[in-house]
């Protein structure tokens, strides 16, 4: 497979989205670069096992996410998060509140979302994968993907909402 797909073209096409996904997971440039490089390295050595050429992108994202989990496992065991069954509400956020933030702030807020929702939410926003595709990449059931995205989205929007209110509170405090 690597012989059939030109490596340079593959890198040119996917290194950006892969890096951005990696950055949303790790929040550090060095780790994101490592994950992206590692993903292409694995492609170069194991990509021939992929039979369906149309799934190259999914294969790369799946590999990157798996490598991320491996990396995290080496550093620290995942803290256990109770996935709340409590009903959630999507807060009322104005698009202007999002536009007022820069990319780094949005990534920072995304990382404040509970860990189990994180990767699914990043793929939801950044890539045009269907829920089935996201489930395949993350290796979790379709229903779980939808549940995680719903709850993660509510958390993210709540964080954006809170951040948008922050300057007003500061102004009150200053006054």
């Amino acid at each position: 497979m690597p012989d059939e797909i030109d490596f340079d073209s593959l890198v040119s096409r996917f290194y950006g989205p892969l890096y951005q996904f990696a950055f949303s997971l790790t929040r550090t440039e060095a780790d994101a670069c490592d994950l992206t490089q590692q993903t292409f390295y694995i492609w170069a050595t194991k990509g021939h096992q992929l039979r369906d050429v149309s799934k190259v992108k999914t294969w790369l994202f799946t590999t990157l996410h798996r490598e991320f989990l491996n990396m995290r496992r080496k550093i620290v065991r995942f803290p256990h998060h109770e996935l709340s069954e409590i009903e959630y509400e999507i807060p009322n956020v104005e698009p202007a509140a999002v536009n007022a933030l820069d990319a780094a702030q949005v990534v920072a807020l995304l990382n404040l979302v509970a860990e189990p929702y994180h990767a699914a939410l990043a793929l939801f926003y950044m890539e045009d994968y269907s829920y089935k595709g996201i489930a395949e990449i993350l290796g979790i059931p379709l229903g779980t993907v939808q549940s995680r995205i719903s709850r993660g989205m509510a958390q993210l929007q709540q964080l954006i909402h809170d951040t948008a209110r922050q300057p007003r509170r500061d102004e009150k405090g200053a006054a």
Partner: peptide, 25 residues
């Protein structure tokens, strides 16, 4: 959704990463 997506997709990719991957390969 579109606003958040635009922000996340605006994360800059380090210059030289593509070249680094290809050179390593």
């Amino acid at each position: 959704f579109q606003a958040i997506r635009a922000k996340l997709k605006a994360v800059p990719v380090p210059q030289g990463l593509r070249r680094q991957i290809i050179v390593e390969h």
